[in-house]
Amino acid sequence: MKVWTRLLGVAMTAAMLVAGPAMAKEWKTVKLGTEGAFPPWNSTKADGTLEGFEIDLANILCERMDVKCEWVVQSWKGIIPALNAGKFDVIMSGMSATAKRAEVIDFSIPYGSTGQTFGVLSDSELVDLPLKGTVFPLASKPEEAKKAIEEIKPMFEGKIIGVQSSAIAERFLQENLADVAEIREYGKTQEHDLDLMSGRVDAIMASTAYISTAMKDPANEGMVLAGPRFQGGILGKGSSIGMRKGSDDLKAMFDKAIASARDDGTIKDLSIKWFGFDVTVY
């Protein structure tokens, strides 16, 4: 009896292994992982439900892919390990597709990019950082970006810059400003906001979208955008949906849905609603 069940088990596993690649898993439900604390991409409302650009966009994408979507909230630090451990099927959490991350997970085509910039207090001398709001693509115009960095560098001499640990802005700061300024790393973006407000750090670096939203919070009165905006290169192609290596079927589904939402202006409409400007990656 025991031998018989074991044999059956082996036979079934073998059958599944053979049939697996031929007949790809039919996706009915897709679990999406999000931080739920990165407005306006995603945030958690007082009643515990999620809202944001990505929540609206995912609803549309899932409808077009004809699947049911379920959200799973996961802290930012552990989000990639959690994906690889199978807690959810994809990450949709304002995550930029960087080369380093692409070593461990696959990415869809990008669905949005706002660039990274600085946030300072309005009474700080750093308000006068040059090139405010100008966009510098690190990959396509490296010389100009290098010049912009050299131009802002002297003003950061001896200053402390707060940044979310292991976010793309942190890598940018370590490579470009760590020689003049102290880089202090935080687990959550809200924490560096608190320390900017209290004066423990002189500036923060985060996505333009994030700082523009945080500024509107009454608790962050006096926080303003400063300096140039950087994007591309080590800052990634833009926010993309992350998935486990080899999820080719999911990638094809999402790529198609994102492309259609980009081409018919859905992403543009949603980004005007949530960001106030167009974040579409064309």
């Binding site: 630090k77 990639i80 390990p81 690889n84 380093k100 461990v104 640990s165």
Partner: peptide
């Protein structure tokens, strides 16, 4: 350690 984890996963 936490920083290394978030860099290397």
């Amino acid at each position: 350690a936490a920083k290394l984890v978030s860099e290397t996963y």
